[in-house]
C-alpha cells in the first residue's frame, strides 16, 4: 500500500512537471529586448552552458517592412557534450549547436527553442539519451527564470 501510494505520488509529480512537454518550448517576458538578452545569457551560463555566438538574422528586415530589427539566434551548448555527440552521431551535425531564438513583440521579448527531447531519437545508445533529458530540464529552468524576471 505504501509503495502504491508513493508510486502514485511520484507519478503525479512526474506528470505535473512534464504536463507541458511540447515540441517547441516558449517563454514571454516583459523585459525589454536588451535586458532579455542579458538575462538569458547570464542564466545559460549559470546553468553551465557556453553561448558560442549570437547571430542577428534581422539585417535588412526593417528595410523590407518588418517592424522590428530585434531578432537574434543564440547558439548554445556544452563544448564537450557537443563534440562527443557530433563525433558519435554525425547526422546530428546540422542540428548542432542547439539554438534559442529571441525576438521582440511589442514591449515584450519572446524565447523559442526546439525541445531537446526531439533529438533523442537520433541517438541509439540509451545512455546518451540522458544528455537530452538534462538539456530539456535545463531549458525549462532557464525559461522559468526568464518568465519570472522583471
Amino acid at each position: 500500500m505504501k509503495l502504491f501510494l508513493s508510486k502514485t505520488l511520484l507519478l503525479c509529480l512526474f506528470i505535473s512537471t512534464h504536463a507541458a512537454a511540447s515540441d517547441l518550448i516558449m517563454a514571454r517576458s516583459t523585459l525589454s529586448f536588451s535586458e532579455a538578452m542579458t538575462n538569458l545569457q547570464v542564466s545559460l551560463k549559470e546553468h553551465g552552458y557556453t553561448v558560442a555566438r549570437v547571430q542577428r538574422i534581422d539585417v535588412g528586415l526593417t528595410g523590407m517592412g518588418y517592424k522590428t530589427d530585434m531578432y537574434r539566434i543564440v547558439f548554445v551548448g556544452k563544448a564537450d557534450e557537443i563534440k562527443y555527440l557530433v563525433n558519435k552521431y554525425p547526422q546530428m551535425i546540422p542540428y548542432m549547436p542547439p539554438k534559442v531564438s529571441v525576438f521582440a513583440e511589442g514591449g515584450d521579448t519572446l524565447l523559442v527553442t526546439a525541445n531537446p527531447s526531439l533529438f533523442a531519437h537520433m541517438v541509439d545508445d540509451e545512455k546518451d539519451k540522458v544528455i537530452f533529458e538534462r538539456w530539456e530540464s535545463d531549458v525549462y529552468s532557464v525559461f522559468d527564470d526568464f518568465r519570472r524576471a522583471e
Binding site: L24, M26, I57, L61, M64, Y66, I73, F103, L110, V112
Partner: peptide, 17 residues
C-alpha cells in the same frame, strides 16, 4: 535570401529558429 526570410517570419515569427 532576405525576401524568403521575410516571408517566412511573416507567416510565423518562430521559424527564425
Amino acid at each position: 535570401n532576405f525576401n524568403f526570410l521575410y516571408q517566412a517570419l511573416a507567416i510565423d515569427p518562430r521559424v527564425g529558429l
